[in-house]
């Protein structure tokens, strides 16, 4: 096995969400494993589909699932959303602040009702 291959594998491990890489080439088997202290939360990142996350209100105000000009809720339960996708809004005086997903996932629950007063940092959506 060439040294370059191991280097490439190591780089992949370092930059990606993986915690372990196994590589077999002929009769040689290489396993690269992160030390647990080096990648806290690596297991979570590796399998985002299976962890539940909440999306929090960026400020306090009234929860608006739809933009007032569109009148259709940005998302519904079951929708797949990408990272940075807008899920809804918080109305703070005359401005609307977008509530955005930090990472991709599926909307599993909307935790607030239209027009409800939400606090800063209050969970508004649940994603899986």
């Amino acid at each position: 096995m060439k040294l370059e291959v191991i280097e490439a594998l190591a780089q992949q491990l370092q930059s990606g969400p993986l915690s372990e890489i196994a590589h077999v080439e002929g009769r040689v088997r290489v396993v690269l494993r992160r030390k647990s202290g080096l990648a806290p939360g690596a297991a979570n990142v590796a399998r985002p589909e299976q962890t539940e996350r909440v999306v929090k209100a960026p400020t306090f105000g009234l929860f608006r699932p739809a933009h007032p000009l569109r009148r259709v809720a940005e998302v519904a339960v079951g929708d797949q959303v990408g990272a940075h996708c807008i899920l809804g809004f918080v109305e703070a005086d005359s401005t609307l602040l977008a509530i955005t997903a930090e990472s991709a996932g599926t909307v599993s629950m909307v935790l607030c009702k239209e027009g409800e007063l939400v606090g800063y940092g209050q969970p508004v959506f649940r994603l899986t």
Binding site: F60, L62, A92, D93, L117, Y120, G121
Partner: peptide, 25 residues
Amino acid sequence: ALCIGPGPAADSYLDPARLLRAARL
């Protein structure tokens, strides 16, 4: 009860705009 901002007082207890908005809401 209403959470109006993060820990630093400048973004919560010392922010007049947030306090007035919270009173209205």
